[in-house]
Design a protein around this nucleic acid. Structure first.
Lengths: 229, 229
DNA sequence: TCCACATTTCGATGATAATAGAAACGTCCA
DNA sequence: TGGACGTTTCTATTATCATCGAAATGTGGA
């Protein structure tokens, strides 16, 4: 239940390190049980529960009960993008350890931004689609052109179905590692889903990072004209 | 002195209502004495001083001593834009009351975003420049085309000089009232300065709002092909 | 030289909120 | 049916921090 979501209340949500850690963990778009989030933030389950209740009250997260677990996830894609943007404000994250920089490298390469792809791969895809004239930027919208309609249909996407969803159809999302836009909205989600179905990408366990498969490399080259290494 | 600017510290800066009020007041890009900022936030000078010291330590604001006054301003344009963006997170600006406050209407129409123009007028200008082929969007950059070079030179802007500045030359800035991009960077600042010099716009006292003059109307129509009312 | 004024520093206070212990609740499993 | 487990609620503790009064600093003007 979204209450009084003014600037201060949103900011104070993220200003607490424990909550920031929880939100960061939830940014992978997956559902997470409360206990996992507590562990991720390094706090007791009670405290995590306290924070999650506060977030739920603001409508940032939603709960799903399954057995004795309660699975939390970020409620709206737009909020996930908001948090992503806040990350970009923090500036270049200082590298602490080699292990961390390795993980960071992976994240920069390809990761989930809630329900759609982000990172270098996603930015390159968005660029390619615009260069080919399939998408056209208009403010924060990304219009699908006539050639784009054919392209996505050919790829196997049901655009009329995606348009029906009660959310923005096709829009830009600022990538905090690349500092460029990638594709978000129903189309971004649908395309990401499709690419996973085609096994172009595979999710890593316990992480937002995404791995590109051999099929993915090939497909990206053939379909989008992108050479990733 | 930019110290450890992580997400939490940035967010906690804005999470406090008093600090938020101060920052909002500083968003006009002008210098403000500490006392004014205290009054604007409704706190005592001591408390304002406390907050300002904290912001200065994070490198968000800088001080300039003039006589017995200390003038504060936002240190970097990029930080001002960050705060502008945080405002847009407050949600799809809900209609607060039937009669929108007069001030709000003015702000939506035209206002300062730190050192460049924002609001409907600014978005329309940016659109116009792209439509005419003077600017070309590329990610978050706005490239000046060959025709753009001529256009701006003709207008009276010294582009080589603007390029020399140690900041982004020409880039997009998200307008939180229009939810579209307007022109920022050295070019946005230079163009705004020029338009003020030509008396197209005039600043309102004690506000970020900007008034368009008769000359401005005429100039906008002739130069940019924009009809503002 | 003295006073007014803008601002900061110091010190104290009071409110807020993050935290974890204890206990309760509900679910799964043996 | 009983116990383990994940989670929440309740409660107390603790630390933090925004705030302001008092005093200090520094500047300008008379």
């Amino acid at each position: 239940m979204s209450l009084n979501r003014n600037v201060s209340s949103i900011a104070s949500l993220i200003s607490d390190p424990s909550r920031a850690a929880i939100l960061l963990h939830l940014l992978d778009g997956r559902c997470h049980p409360a206990g996992d989030l507590a562990a991720a933030a390094g706090i007791t389950p009670q405290t995590a529960s306290f924070h999650l209740a506060k977030m739920a009250e603001l409508g940032i997260v939603t709960v799903e009960k399954h057995g004795r677990h309660r699975y939390y996830r970020i409620a709206k894609a737009s909020d996930a993008e908001m948090i992503e943007q806040l990350l970009s404000f923090a500036g270049p994250v200082p590298v602490i350890s080699l292990r961390q920089s390795d993980q960071m490298k992976k994240l920069r390469h390809a990761r989930m931004c809630y329900d759609h792809l982000a990172g270098e791969a996603a930015v390159r895809i968005a660029e390619s689609l615009q260069r080919a004239g399939h998408l056209q930027k208009d403010g924060l919208q990304l219009h699908v052109t006539a050639s784009g309609e054919r392209f996505f249909a050919d790829l196997g996407l049901d655009l009329p179905q995606l348009r029906k969803k009660r959310r923005a159809f096709s829009r830009c999302c600022l990538d905090w590692t690349e500092r460029e836009h990638h594709l978000a909205g129903a189309l971004g989600q649908g395309l990401t889903e499709l690419m996973f179905a085609m096994d172009w990408f595979r999710r890593e366990e316990q992480s937002r990072a995404v791995r590109i498969t051999q099929e993915g490399m090939q497909g990206m080259a053939e379909r989008f004209g992108i050479q990733l290494d």
